[in-house]
Write a protein that binds this DNA or RNA. Structure first.
Lengths: 228, 228
DNA sequence: TACATACTTTCACTATAATCGAAATATGGA
DNA sequence: TCCATATTTCGATTATAGTGAAAGTATGTA
């Protein structure tokens, strides 16, 4: 009937609470098994399997088979970015329990957005790098200043290697919880990896939240002037 | 249940073919009455009214009452941008009739994307302005060169007035039909308005396609070196 | 006042889709 | 070969949501 792309088809994949939860869980950028995702969405494995098949068929999710496990992941970075954009225009989560509200707080404090940092920490970090003169904010992206080049190299990030990657280098990603931009792209990914390597941050199990270690607390304070 | 924003709620608004058609129809950025939208989505007025009420309640659409008419419009520019992004990751429309395929062609040739030009014409125009040295493409946006400043002013566009508007000035919008970027933001809107003022383009009734007039054909050729 | 138009609300019908139990399949290890 | 684990397929149940007829409301016109 319509002369426009079949938006409804994709939307119907996202319109179901269980599937939306599965997708949100996959937004940490990692692989998850069907059983894991079933647990996170609080549904039986066979139901999750049913939903995952739909998501794979709709090209939102891809699957890799390894033995009797099947590992699911978001199909590509674009899907992750699209979902993050979707979260920003969606109404905030309803709080129904204490556990839930503390989990929401963890997510809002610091989380991964596919392959880079988001939440309060992600935004603060980005703004700190801007005010320190390492990054310059353009309309929808960040550019590295000469000072920044020195800084990132000294911090242990191989900028030339990142530039070689066939993807956006340093675009601005709108944070759904903070409603402000944070750094994404290859540079954002490089920083996240470095923070893990330095053991400044660790993952919180089952949700895509991030916890700052004591070492990280000191590091973020000293180098980025952020109180975590 | 979920600790993420209620994405499913918004998605369910888009997941229904009639509503998706209504939203796509509203993407021309203009106001439409309930009856018009009912006709475009090929449903009865009472059904359209039912859907429109949902869209308004979900903050995707706003309504203005004037006498016995109720005029509907997308709630804001962000929604329009979000929908355009949604179209790019959605599967292409299925062709079922000759009329439909010619309408699709019209849309792909030239259309409005809320308040700026999109489709082949939009992309060609943008790329022409880049190769002429009026615009410079950054990662996710365009910047005006000094030559460009002269050009736009001479073409009858008040750049200072546009900059004063509280919105993105010249970001890149991904074209769903061309899969390439075109110019959006206040500058994109300024250009569209100017083209209408110059009578280079007119609207095609009932779909958000754009037709280039004979005068426009000459203008686009002379000033932008595009064969339409 | 009477009537037409624009639109919404109510209601009943129908179709679709999510869910889960049960059984089937596939893989790895003992 | 047998069993445990991971996942899918099938089938039945249930809930939900789109649809349009009919009636209702509001606004403008004769």
């Amino acid at each position: 009937m319509s002369i426009n792309p079949n938006m409804a088809e994709v939307a119907s994949l996202l319109s179901e609470a269980s599937r939306a939860t599965i997708l949100a869980s996959l937004m940490d950028g990692r692989f998850h098994t069907a059983s894991e995702l079933a647990f996170m969405a609080a549904i039986k494995p066979q139901t999750a399997s049913f939903h995952l098949a739909k998501l794979v068929e709709g090209n939102l999710v891809k699957v890799e088979k390894q033995g009797r496990h099947r590992y699911f992941q978001l199909a590509n970075v674009e899907i992750a970015q699209f979902l993050e954009a979707f979260l920003t225009i969606s109404p905030p989560p309803e709080v129904r329990s204490l556990k839930q509200s503390s989990q929401i707080k963890l997510l809002q404090d610091a989380r991964t957005c596919y392959d880079h940092l988001a939440g309060k920490l992600g935004v603060q970090l980005t703004e700190s790098m801007v005010s320190s003169g390492y990054l310059k904010k353009e309309e929808q992206q960040y550019t590295i200043t000469p000072t920044g080049q020195l800084f990132f190299t000294e911090f242990g990030i191989d900028l030339t290697a990142l530039t070689r990657k066939r993807r956006s280098f340093s675009h601005a990603c709108l944070d759904w919880s903070e409603r402000r931009h944070h750094l994404a792209g290859a540079l954002g990914q490089g920083l996240l990896t470095r923070f893990f390597d330095l053991a400044w941050i660790t993952r919180v199990p089952s949700i895509r939240a991030i916890k700052v270690t004591e070492k990280g607390r000191q590091g973020f304070k000293q180098i980025f002037h952020i109180d975590v």
